[in-house]
Design a protein around this nucleic acid. Structure first.
Lengths: 119, 119
DNA sequence: CCATTACGTAGCCATTTGGCTACAAATATA
DNA sequence: TATATTTGTAGCCAAATGGCTACGTAATGG
């Protein structure tokens, strides 16, 4: 399923497309928080919702976006919907960001230190 | 300067804020392309615009967003406006993405290979 | 069987986004 | 000085975003 383009009448040579890539997936802070949680544990929708101050329906919208760009997979068991993060997708972001590493040598050490503390 | 919140009348307990962080800055593909260019060379607005199919005014809007989240700095010389990327800001993204590295060990090697080819 | 629980769908709303046009202002240059 | 160039500003538009309410459906369990 691909996004559907739609023509703007005012400016006919411009076409809007709904972007669904990883970068747009992680653009929202709530979605990043959800990813951080789902990477640690598989949760169903209502349990996940309990951790946030927004409605289940809003969470569902976020999950839809995360699923559409491959950051989350859904496993349906009975009436429950178990959610799991796909962290390897975030590798795409890491890859893109690392391209700039040579341009910020000053920050290199700090990032390196940071990575050491993670190990 | 911080974003201004605004109350929604229909649902009064929801407040919208204009997010201006690095993640929102890199969410748009055009902005990522601009960053990739401005990290290599300092350019003025019209020269930058020549590389893309959208109007200068649209580029200006992107630059405003990039500037607001610290990804681009502007140096005004005479009537010209020279733009330069601040790649160390992208380090924030790298840092966030690397948090997930331990969860995608499988992709680690591929990323490692990629980084080797960059050196 | 019937109540509860988990999730879905539809639609409303304000704001943001990302494009555009039109025109104004300021600075260089011939 | 007059013209060309660079940038700024204002506003239009459709779509997307991120929240909400209201209600419907489907599965579980006492």
């Amino acid at each position: 399923m691909h996004p559907i383009g739609c023509v703007c009448i005012f400016a006919p040579n411009q076409v809007h497309f709904m972007r669904r890539d990883v970068f747009q997936g992680i653009a929202d802070p709530t979605r990043r928080a959800i990813l951080g949680r789902l990477v640690k544990e598989k949760l169903n929708l209502t349990t996940l919702t309990d951790h946030y101050d927004i409605t289940r329906q809003s969470i569902t919208k976020h999950i839809r976006i995360l699923e559409e760009c491959g950051l989350v997979t859904i496993e349906k068991i009975g009436r429950e919907k178990y959610l799991r993060a796909q962290p390897e997708k975030i590798g795409e972001v890491a890859k893109w960001a690392e391209q700039f590493r040579s341009f910020y040598a000053g920050s290199y050490d700090r990032l390196d230190d940071y990575l050491k503390t993670m190990e």
